[in-house]
Design a binder for these strands. Structure first.
Length: 862
RNA sequence: GCCCGCUUGGCGGAAUUGGUAGACGCAAGGGACUUAAAAUCCCUCGGCUGUAAGGCUGUGCCGGUUCGAGUCCGGCAGCGGGCACCA
């Protein structure tokens, strides 16, 4: 008996696939294409289990679709710009480019060891000038089209490191490295006009039928479209001299509640608030307090609703003589609507809390249909669909929709308001004050202003000779890189030293894969053929930003002639994370899983034998040390075992727990498949032997098991139910095992066994491709399994010759009947009524009703 | 606070979408082989009850619809995720 040795076999098959260029993709109009893509990795240095799971799933789809006859594109690249490279440069003195390309080399080797069916000839890294030069070209085209603009925007500024910090680098208001208090600084920055597509990005979500509902909902909420009314109130009293010519403009979606208005509130950043703050230090102090809450949702959540009465009053548009006070309030945001609201406490919880605090009136104006005399205590009536207007003059008796329409009509007639649509979505700021990113290809000239770098001077490449010994951006410190002559007037000018947000790089790489070496962003012929991505796979953490930016970018590319379709990904799957138990020693220090062994059911330290505290199961992270290194696992068990484990048992969209016993179970199965094949070889007829005439019960049953497995596994892979596919494969293996144990002498036994083993091998191949090739060759095939078509189940063989019909009395199972499929109802009923157990449970009563579901169930009701 | 989602044995999870609840795997227990171990193979495995055949019960909790509910409806609880005090 031999064993399957992955250490020897896996590299051998990988070399063979490479030699045959089995995964190199060429456009071929005569064949249907299928583009499978997993989110490309950041080259951090080593792959982790999340990558293994992600790329295994993509590879299953790629190999399956290839076997189904599709022309498959399955590329790989590197999201190679970003801060960790600069951190490494500062901490260890290694140049970001060197650090990055070395990491890429390591990780490429690790991914290749997984046996992924990737077209490596299309590999790209976003830090290749060949790649980012085309990105710069598209930026300039977007600029020409008005899809890009500059404006002032605040950044987190670390005064000690003299650098801009990303939000995640600000911890409790301090810089992560320096510990200095972070300041807000205004910088002029570049923005992509994603809001220009807000409506389309929202509406088109409906067309993305093969996206998870959850992701579409998250994007929809993020875009946050609302329809309302912008309305202006006359300011009375000290209105003169204030911005807005004595009017306060508010935005509301509940204009139906105008008769319940008891105050207005403006943001601390509203022009009126700024003006007042400039004159009054008390107001200035209050505004500062409001801003200081800032930041996280949680902080805002806990903050008490605070207001400052400005002394201003606005006139109610429909009630003569009625006025409402204007407050500056900490819960009104300048960035949304007009930065001002009117408060109707009876129908908005925040407004109600605010009104109670400041003793403002609470007048209900909408009543539930079943409670016209509604009284508001501590809960606002916030239903904005069902209700009838009360206490509202000419609106009384209308429903909410009618009331909204009437107010909109009247406000428009008075030229005091108009319908308005608001979005939560804001334009995408892409400027980063960093070295290791794509340079923004513009020049600042004292005379000509912002001048685009001429197309023939692209790419603007990063200078290699930079130093990281000073705080701040090395590009601005570089002695000569930024200095140049203005392309328009020839005078001395400076380059932009900001680089792009790395989300820009990842917003079009999927299109670049179609033609990674082209001297245009995308080769139209290749892109026409391959795009869109048919199946995109990645973590749900990218559900909003990366996917939304990519959808925007593809629209912008469409407008500049680089894309045919607006949507880049027609199918999306978001996979769960890989988790592991956590371990701590007596001192509370985290321990690696390999430092732990189980002794008498208790976890102890491998070397010292000291007891170990087993903590929660959490997603693998270096900080908690609950990580298992894929390279170690592959060295120990082989890639196939690792691949098999990460898709077994747990549905792909859920978090999977990595366990030692689980990987051992997967390892046992690889050996089991090999053994079933190896031990059967002597009993098998030749490849392609004709179907023998003789039949036999056991052989027919085995053939049915094979064809059922083909049916089920095919369906399960199509539907991303890899864990079920795995279960079906186990069932087939169990069936083959039982058949072998029978030592069956039927004429068809050998044929049935070969068919079963070949089915097992082919169905297993997407998950365990090396083992499958090894078995395939052992079974006598010369042609590679990767070139072998996916099998089709024969419906003749899957049809059961007998079905089990459950017999119930009053809905309780009392027995079963084994009958030929399609047995007539009456016959089934008669047989059921004649059963001893049925008669017993009918207790002498007559059957009131007999429900017969064909081939399924009989229910006798007494 | 709002919006989603989930809740099935010791564990991960199945259940052809209203028709045998617990497939398959892991763990556990028993047995075979072996000098022994490993590997492998066979058997048992929701709970209660019974010598057995069987019976009762069981999919977070309460109620409803139905001949029949893990699945559909209403309410509640717990857990997880998303977010925006968004007017």
């Amino acid at each position: 008996m031999t064993r399957f040795n992955p250490k020897e076999a896996e590299p051998r098959w990988q070399a063979r696939w490479e030699a045959e260029q089995a995964f190199t993709a060429f456009p071929d109009a005569s064949r249907e294409k299928y583009y499978v893509l997993e989110m490309f990795p950041y080259p951090s240095g080593r792959i982790h289990m999340g990558h293994v799971r992600n790329y295994t799933m993509g590879d299953i789809v790629a190999r399956y679709k290839r076997a189904q006859g599709f022309n498959v594109l399955h590329p790989m690249g590197w999201d190679a710009f970003g801060m960790p490279a600069e951190n490494a440069a500062r901490e260890r003195g290694v140049h970001p480019a060197i650090w990055t390309y070395e990491n890429i080399a390591t990780m490429r080797g690790q991914l290749k060891a997984m046996g992924l069916s990737i077209d490596w000839s299309r590999e790209l890294a976003t830090c290749d000038p060949e790649y980012y030069g085309q990105e710069q070209r598209m930026f300039l085209e977007f600029l020409e089209r008005g899809l890009v603009y500059r404006k002032e925007s605040a950044v987190n500024w670390d005064p000690v490191d003299e650098t801009v910090l990303a939000n995640e680098q600000v911890i409790d208001g301090r810089g992560w490295r320096s510990g200095a208090l972070v300041e807000q600084r205004q910088l002029t920055q570049w923005f992509f006009k994603i809001t220009a597509y807000a409506d389309d990005l929202l509406k088109s979500l409906d067309t993305l039928e093969r996206w998870p509902e959850k992701v579409r909902l998250m994007q929809s909420n993020w875009i946050g479209r609302s329809e309302g009314l912008r309305m202006r109130f006359a300011i009375t009293g000290e209105a003169r001299g204030l911005p807005g010519a004595g009017e306060l403009e508010v935005y509301t979606t509940r204009h139906d509640t105008i008769f319940g208005m008891s105050f207005c509130a403006i943001s601390a950043d509203h022009p009126i608030a700024l003006e007042l703050a400039a004159k009054d230090p008390v107001i200035a102090e209050f505004c500062k307090q409001c801003r200081d809450i800032g930041g996280t949702a949680e902080a805002l959540e806990r903050a008490e609703k605070l207001g400052f009465d400005t002394g201003l009053r606005v006139r109610h548009p429909f009630i003569a003589g009625r006025e409402a006070p204007v407050y500056i309030a900490n819960f009104v945001l300048m960035g949304y609507g007009t930065g001002a609201i009117f408060g109707c406490p009876a129908h908005d919880q925040r407004d109600l809390d605010f009104a109670r605090k400041y003793g403002l009136s609470v007048v209900p104006v909408v009543a539930p249909e079943d409670n016209p005399g509604v009284i508001i205590e501590n809960d606002a009536y916030t239903d904005d669909i069902n209700g009838r207007m009360i206490n509202s003059d000419f609106l009384n008796g209308m429903d909410i929709a009618q009331a909204k329409a009437e107010i909109a009509r009247r406000m428009q007639a008075m030229s005091s308001g108009e319908p308005a649509v608001s979005f939560r979505l804001r334009d995408w700021g892409v400027s980063r004050q960093r070295y290791w990113g794509c340079p923004i290809p513009v020049i600042h000239c004292a005379k000509c202003g912002v001048v685009p770098v001429p197309y023939d001077q692209l790419p603007v490449t990063l200078p290699h000779d930079v130093t990281f010994d000073k705080p701040g951006n090395p590009l601005t410190h570089h002695p000569d890189w930024k200095h140049m002559d203005c392309p328009e007037c020839g005078a001395g000018a400076v380059r932009e030293t900001d680089t792009f947000d790395t989300f820009v790089d990842s917003s079009w790489y999927f299109a670049r894969f179609c033609s990674p070496r082209a001297n245009v962003p995308v080769d139209p012929m290749e892109a026409e053929y391959w795009m869109p991505v048919d199946q995109y796979i990645g973590g749900v953490e990218h559900a909003i930003l990366h996917l939304l930016y990519s959808r925007f970018f593809t629209r912008a590319m469409k407008e500049t002639g680089h894309a045919r379709d607006a949507e880049p990904f027609s199918g999306l799957f978001t996979q769960g994370m890989v988790t592991h138990e956590t371990y701590k020693d007596a001192n509370g220090a985290w321990l690696f899983p390999e430092q732990i062994i189980r002794r008498d059911g208790a976890a102890v330290h491998r070397e010292s034998g000291a007891p170990v505290l087993v903590g929660k199961i959490e997603s693998m992270s270096k900080s908690k040390r609950n990580v298992v290194d894929p390279e170690t696992i592959i060295a120990q068990y082989g890639a196939d075992t690792a691949r098999w484990f990460v898709v077994s048992d747990t549905p792909p969209e859920r978090d999977i727990e990595w366990t030692e016993s689980g990987i051992e179970g997967a390892w046992r199965f690889t050996q089991r498949v090999w053994r079933l094949v190896d031990e059967s070889l002597a009993k098998l007829p030749l490849v392609n032997a004709p179907v023998p005439d003789g039949r036999g019960r056991a052989s027919v049953a085995l053939r049915r098991a094979s064809h059922n497995a083909i049916t089920w596994v095919t369906e399960d892979i199509e539907r991303f139910h890899f864990n079920r596919a795995v279960a079906r494969i186990y069932e087939l293996a169990n069936g083959i095992n039982s058949f072998i144990n029978l030592d069956c002498t039927e004429a068809a036994a050998g044929y049935a066994l070969r068919e079963a083993l070949e089915s097992l091998v082919i169905l297993t191949a997407p998950m365990m491709p090396h083992l499958a090739e090894e078995c395939w060759r052992a079974l006598g095939h010369d042609r590679l399994l990767v070139h072998t078509p996916w099998p089709k189940a024969d419906p003749e063989l899957t049809r059961a010759d007998q079905v089990t019909i459950i017999v119930q009395v009053n809905g309780k199972r009392r027995g079963e009947l084994g009958l030929a499929p399609g047995t007539p109802r009456q016959e089934v009923e008669n047989l059921a009524l004649a059963m001893e157990a049925v008669i017993r449970h009918m207790d002498g009563k007559p059957a009131r009703k007999v429900v017969v579901v064909a081939d399924r169930i009989v229910n006798v009701v007494v």
